[in-house]
């Protein structure tokens, strides 16, 4: 398989057009050209750490503040799922746990695994890495669903003093964590996966 780099050319990652090596910008779409993004992995790690750090307060602080006539409750992501579980809603509790805990942690692990195992072929083949990257890239934005659910509940459940739901500060750090991990995935240059292929 001949790559653009092998042929002394550089391909535009935005529109696919091919240029001579050394051309600064694509003459069709204007994107800056580089044969390989050398800073890609650095930026992946920077966003990855930012995302992981933001994910900690997202779990420690309350996501929802529910006030009713008789009580005020603050629930964290895991706390909310446990409450649902004790309430008997096992199915909903599992969905919340998978969407807000399992998928974000799996995403962190997948990005770190890709960055560490790149070009280590005894661990994972090119096609499998390419697939894993596609899944991470696809699923990243869907984690924002939690923030939207909080927004909808908080704007909808407003029965003055009887029952009110307010958003907790964890929503902010959760949203930041999702945005940072999306940036980590977007910073990844998938072309380096294939560079060692014979």
């Amino acid at each position: 398989m001949v790559t653009a780099r092998d042929a002394g050319l550089v391909g535009c990652t935005r529109c696919g057009r091919v240029h001579h090596m050394g051309t600064p910008a694509c003459n069709r779409c204007g994107a800056p050209l580089s044969s390989r993004d050398d800073t890609s992995l650095q930026r992946v790690w920077a966003w990855w750490w930012a995302g992981l750090i933001a994910y900690i307060p997202a779990n420690l602080y309350p996501m929802l503040l529910t006030s009713t006539l008789v009580s005020n409750t603050e629930s964290t992501i895991v706390g909310g799922a446990v409450e649902l579980f004790l309430h008997g809603d096992v199915g909903v509790a599992l969905i919340v746990l998978i969407a807000s805990v399992v998928i974000p942690i799996a995403k962190f692990m997948a990005i770190a695994f890709l960055a560490v195992s790149i070009n280590k072929r005894h661990i994972m083949g090119e096609h499998a890495q390419h697939q894993l990257f596609s899944v991470v890239e696809f699923i990243g934005r869907w984690s924002m669903i939690d923030v939207f659910v909080v927004a909808i509940l908080a704007s909808l459940v407003r029965f003055s003093v009887v029952a009110t739901i307010n958003p907790g500060i964890a929503a902010v750090s959760f949203a930041l964590s999702v945005a940072f991990t999306m940036q980590a995935a977007l910073s990844f240059d998938p072309r380096i996966i294939w560079d060692d292929e014979k």
């Binding site: 790559t3 653009a4 391909g11 935005r14 091919v18 001579h20 090119e126 998938p190 996966i193």
Partner: peptide
């Protein structure tokens, strides 16, 4: 050799893996 002399306009590189 297949790409020798082919005008750049008629080539595309895959943005995901750089294959020509």
């Amino acid at each position: 050799e297949e790409f020798a002399g082919v005008p750049l306009d008629e080539l595309r590189a895959c943005p995901h893996c750089d294959a020509l």
